[in-house]
């Protein structure tokens, strides 16, 4: 590798690490906010702002890396075993659907990705909740969660848009 290429991959690694750390902090912080579902481990999904930002600047591969790293570390630090499943379901569903759609969305429409991501995140959460507690009755929370997901998703989408403006450089360039 030439010195230029080495420093490029180091910069990429650094940036991914920083993104992971940021996502992790948000993930842990949002635990302080009220729980959308009456089950331990469910989360609002605010950390998806990083997922959204990364998808539009770094491509699916790196985004997935950051997502999985954040989920793994997050559930380790949270101390609750169930957090892993909720975060995986929420994060992966959000990631996959937004990735599928990101080509049809413009940067200005990042909030749309946010809303969709928020909805998907919460659908993932409720699916896991029903599976883990074996209480199909929880499905009654679905409309609440979709509405809530649209709200938090809008928020994360706008934040991601803000991030994109302040930190516009694509990772791939590095």
């Amino acid at each position: 590798m030439t010195p230029l290429q080495t420093s490029a991959s180091v910069r990429r690694l650094t940036r991914l690490a920083l993104l992971t750390a940021a996502a992790l902090s948000i993930h842990l912080l949002e635990g302080l906010l009220p729980n959308p579902l009456p089950v331990p481990g469910a989360k609002l999904g605010l950390a998806n702002v990083i997922t959204l930002y990364a998808l539009f600047t770094a491509g699916p591969g790196d985004t997935l890396l950051v997502l999985l790293a954040r989920i793994l570390l997050g559930s380790l630090f949270s101390g609750r075993g169930t957090t892993l499943f909720y975060s995986l379901a929420g994060g992966l569903l959000c990631f996959s659907v937004v990735w599928l759609l990101h080509r049809v969305l413009t940067r200005r429409q990042l909030w749309v990705a946010g809303v969709i991501g928020g909805i998907c995140h919460n659908i993932g959460q409720i699916a896991v909740a029903i599976a883990l507690t074996r209480t199909p009755a929880l499905i009654v929370y679905l409309p609440w969660l979709i509405l809530c997901g649209m709200g938090t998703g809008l928020f994360t989408g706008l934040c991601a848009r803000f991030l994109l403006e302040k930190l516009p450089e694509k990772l791939k360039k590095w």
Binding site: I119, L142, I146, L147, M150
Partner: peptide, 12 residues
């Protein structure tokens, strides 16, 4: 999104 929100409201 408005349609989805409306559906949810009805379901609630």
């Amino acid at each position: 999104f408005a349609a989805v929100a409306l559906l949810c409201a009805v379901a609630i």
